[in-house]
Simulated assay, not measured.
Amino acid sequence: MIRYALACDHAHEFEGWFGSSDDYDAQLAKGQVACPVCDSTAVAKQIMAPAVAGTKRKGEVALNPQARQMMMEALGQVRRHVEENFDYVGDSFATEARAIHEGRSEERGIYGEASPKEIRELTADGVSIAPLPPEAPKKTDVN
């Protein structure tokens, strides 16, 4: 996983986590990286200091490698459970989540894709949603 400090063309600053630099580039090219404040897709990486071992921000807790590995495995188990037991609805996620919330569709677990705007609208309307943990990088893709 890689964390980028990002900013939109309206100077709203936020951060994003990506599986790799290539994942960021692909999502940006598809217009899938958007400002959580104004929904602008004109987003750029900001200058960041490299993560140096032994430096911590105020209040930041450093995870030891075993704790980090356990956390990543737990997130992977959550993702696998959802993929194995929930219905994949693709780009229809927002429409189907709203239909379930309003009782127009059967109650069931679903997962899929939604734009930042759709996510904000669902949340504002009281529809319970949560992001799916990202896929763990393949060992062949990790340095």
Rank of each mutant, 00 (worst) to 15 (best):
M1Y: 08
M1G: 09
I2L: 14
R3K: 14
R3H: 13
Y4H: 14
A5I: 02
L6S: 05
A7R: 11
D9E: 12
H10E: 10
H10T: 08
A11D: 15
A11I: 00
H12M: 09
E13V: 11
F14K: 02
F18D: 07
F18R: 09
S21Q: 12
D23S: 13
D23N: 08
D25V: 04
L28R: 08
L28K: 13
K30N: 12
G31V: 05
Q32M: 11
C35H: 03
C35G: 06
P36H: 04
C38N: 09
C38I: 10
C38D: 15
C38V: 09
T41F: 05
A44D: 04
Q46C: 13
P50N: 08
A51R: 15
T55L: 14
V61E: 11
A62V: 15
A62R: 11
L63R: 11
L63Q: 13
L63S: 11
L63T: 03
P65V: 11
Q66T: 11
R68T: 04
R68S: 14
Q69T: 09
M72W: 02
L75W: 03
G76M: 02
Q77L: 13
V78I: 15
R79C: 10
H81R: 13
E83A: 08
E84T: 12
N85M: 04
N85E: 08
N85C: 07
V89C: 11
G90V: 02
S92A: 14
T95D: 12
T95I: 07
T95N: 12
T95F: 05
E96K: 12
E96S: 03
R98I: 01
A99I: 03
I100W: 07
I100L: 09
E102Q: 14
G103F: 03
R104K: 15
S105G: 06
S105A: 15
E106W: 00
E106M: 05
E107N: 09
E107I: 00
R108Y: 05
G109P: 06
I110N: 01
Y111K: 05
G112C: 02
I119Y: 00
I119F: 04
R120L: 08
R120W: 02
R120I: 05
D125N: 14
G126L: 09
G126H: 05
I129W: 06
A130K: 06
A130S: 12
A130Q: 11
P131K: 07
P133T: 08
P134R: 10
E135P: 06
E135T: 02
